[in-house]
Computed example of a mutant assay.
Amino acid sequence: MSDWLPETPRNLAFPTTAYVTLAGADWLASASPHPEGMHMLWAERPTAPSVLPCGAVFDVINAPALFGRRMVDRLWSAGPGSGPVATHRGRILLFASPGTAQRLPALLAWEEWGSAVPHLLCHGSGDAVTVPPLHPRPRTARTGTARAAGAGRGRAVGHPAEGAEPGDPAASTGSRWLVAPDVRDPWLPGPDVLLWACVRAARGGLGADQETARPHQEPAVHTADTALTGG
């Protein structure tokens, strides 16, 4: 049913920003009733995750990792792009316009593909979410052997938790930015856009599951034919 995309600006390049800019930090802090306190906290603990309320500046749609990745892929490959996106404890957090958390479940309930969408946690007014650190913690070599083994290997942008030292809060929570906020007023998808992304992700996932199952079915058919022919 919802194989249409609302008229939204189209961004053609997938961003690889792994850290929050000063303007992006101002936007995040504006969600707090005490913005200056958030800036002080980040200055004291730059590699620690923090908690921000939803509902006023943004809502957050919290999806299982694989399905959330599919949503983000569809948004950037065939849609208008996304707002900030983070990962936390194996879940994907898509930042959306205020009100999305209330409207999206109702839209999915009317959507014929809604039953194929896994359970989404929709955080809106009265909820709070954990956001990743503003900046990833630099990787440090533990030993000379590790340093030599790692020589010449590049690190993909967006994986700041890898190689983090023991006790690093970001490492223990698995928090990192996939699309970090980098402007003071980022564009945020609304419920219509995220409904479209959910449907496209669900349909694409079903096709991938069918393709995966096909190689396992064909040998079984071949074996049955061989038994019937005595070959």
Rank of each mutant, 00 (worst) to 15 (best):
E7K: 03
P6F: 02
A43H: 09
L41F: 15
C54P: 14
Y19K: 11
A13Q: 10
A13I: 07
V51I: 14
G55M: 09
W27I: 01
A29W: 04
T8R: 11
P35D: 13
F14S: 00
L12M: 06
S30H: 14
L52E: 03
G24C: 02
A13T: 07
Y19Q: 14
T21L: 01
S50G: 08
L52Q: 04
T8S: 02
D26T: 08
G37V: 10
A13S: 08
Y19F: 10
A18G: 15
A18K: 03
F14W: 11
P9F: 10
S30V: 01
A56S: 10
W27S: 00
P33K: 10
S50M: 13
L41T: 06
R10E: 05
V20E: 01
S32G: 06
M38C: 06
T17A: 13
S32F: 04
P9G: 06
E7D: 05
S32Q: 11
G37I: 08
A29Y: 04
P53G: 13
A18Y: 09
D26C: 06
E7R: 06
L52D: 01
V20D: 02
H39N: 08
F14R: 12
G37M: 11
V20A: 02
H34Q: 15
V57L: 11
A29E: 03
G37E: 12
V51K: 05
L12W: 12
W27N: 02
S30W: 14
T16M: 10
C54S: 13
P46Q: 09
G37D: 13
A56G: 09
M38H: 00
A48C: 07
W42M: 06
L12E: 09
A48S: 15
P53Y: 12
F14A: 01
S30G: 05
G24M: 03
T8G: 02
W27A: 03
L12F: 11
A56C: 09
T21I: 07
T16I: 04
V20Q: 02
V51G: 02
N11H: 14
L28W: 09
P46T: 04
L41W: 13
M40L: 11
L28T: 00
A23E: 09
P9E: 02
D26Y: 00
G55I: 06
A56T: 15
W42L: 02
P49D: 11
A23I: 02
L12P: 00
V51R: 11
Y19D: 10
T17H: 13
M40T: 15
T16V: 05
E36S: 13
S30N: 11
A18I: 01
T21Q: 10
G24N: 05
S32Y: 08
R45H: 13
G24S: 02
A23S: 08
A48L: 02
A43Y: 07
G55N: 12
A13P: 01
P46L: 10
T16L: 15
G55F: 12
A43K: 11
A23C: 03
A43N: 10
E7C: 03
E7V: 01
G24W: 05
S32N: 15
A48T: 15
H34I: 09
P53D: 06
T16A: 07
A23H: 11
W42R: 10
S32L: 15
C54T: 14
L52S: 04
S30Y: 09
F14Y: 12
L12C: 01
N11D: 12
A31Y: 04
F58L: 14
H39K: 11
P33A: 09
A29I: 01
A43G: 07
S30T: 04
T8Q: 06
W27E: 02
